[in-house]
Write a protein that binds this DNA or RNA. Structure first.
Lengths: 205, 205
DNA sequence: TAGCCACCTATACAAAAGGATAGGGTGCCG
DNA sequence: CGGCACCCTATCCTTTTGTATAGGTGGCTA
């Protein structure tokens, strides 16, 4: 009987998922409320087959927890679970060797399928996370921002004025204006606020 | 047999909680994946006793959804559920007449207790949400924004100019400037970009 | 070497944003 | 009724933003 370890700091979410998994299929389920506790449980007597890691959880520290779990227990399959993660995170997780990614939008039954899939040695990745993020609207390509423009954008995202940014970057205000103008054009937005919003929504800073 | 309507856009969370509630006690549970669907379900043949609303959900629009639900169905008890909400939100929800607040950190069994509590006519509010939150940094209180200021802020968060906002609200540009100036002061920020960032980070829009 | 690119600067201008002051009006409540 | 809060408008002002044009530097590369 496969043993699943669910690590999520939201007790409500974790417990209900655990109960659901135990009820719906033949799983042994144990739980942990933070990353360290999960690591501890894997060392114990239980032969854990699958670890389900919540992306937002004390101790995870982004995807670092995923890496640590994989290194310390290479034999145990790891699935990342998240309600907020964007495609970038999901894809990075997969490229780091995760065996699956479960968005919380997933239907409960689909989750069971995904888990069985992974336990069978496959890797599960939702199709809607497959293409490298959106096509809608002109791309808003952060990639072709120059280094200086990127630094400027970063400070825009704190709501600083051109003058402040100039001081922070050690240049003249007029230079900052230039960078701002250029990055607005490249991001295809019409003012600094929209640029900041866009960067924020993309979780860039 | 009490009938509970759970509205949450995370299928996984919603379905497992629903399954848990049906399994653990004598509840009839129906679900909805967005706010409008929830409203629709309440109008139907089911005599819903309790509505569990996810704070972050399409159509909720902050706590506006809570208010709409209460106004259109005053007899139905409403409990707000959230994984991210701060104390301010929880308290505001309660002051707006919510019958309870369920953080997702709550243990599953405690949730059942809370639900039974509310169904019995009490109001449930977790103790750790009781004191009025943090002292760090000036509060940035969204609560004391007037309606117009809130509408203005909402448009700020799309990066619109004063002129555009004026057109959208059907007032003069100078009036928008006034609203902007006042809301900047109330939020304790120094320009529109910071206001937008702040609102975005608070997941207000 | 010439050409390109990122970067910096300067001047000048139009538009937008932000602030101050001084009024209108409404509706609510003690 | 007066006071108060919110809303709207107006005028005047300073500062900030955004754009344009016109340079100068260094580095990299065809």
């Amino acid at each position: 009987m496969p043993c699943i370890l669910i690590a999520d700091d939201h007790d409500l979410v974790r417990d209900t998922i655990a109960a659901y998994l135990e009820a719906v299929d033949e799983f042994t389920v144990i739980t942990a409320s933070n990353f360290e506790a999960a690591l501890g449980s894997m060392k114990g007597i239980n032969a854990v087959d699958l670890l389900i890691l919540d992306y937002n959880m004390p101790g995870m520290n982004g995807l670092e927890g995923l890496e640590r779990a994989r290194k310390s227990h290479p034999a145990i399959k790891v699935v990342l679970m998240s309600g907020v993660a964007n495609k970038d995170v999901a894809q990075t997780a997969m490229s780091m060797g995760a065996d699956g990614f479960i968005p919380k939008r997933l239907a409960a039954k689909s989750m069971v399928n995904a888990i069985n899939f992974v336990l069978a040695g496959e890797r599960y990745f939702p199709v809607d996370f497959a293409e490298p993020e959106q096509a809608a609207a002109p791309p808003a390509n952060f990639a072709d921002l120059t280094e200086r423009e990127m630094q400027t954008l970063e400070q825009l995202c704190i709501g600083l004025s051109n003058k402040d940014i100039a001081r922070n970057l050690g240049v003249q205000e007029v230079t900052v204006k230039l960078h701002v103008k250029n990055l607005l054009a490249k991001l295809n937005v019409s003012n600094r606020t929209q640029a900041a919003i866009l960067a924020k929504e993309q979780h860039l800073f």
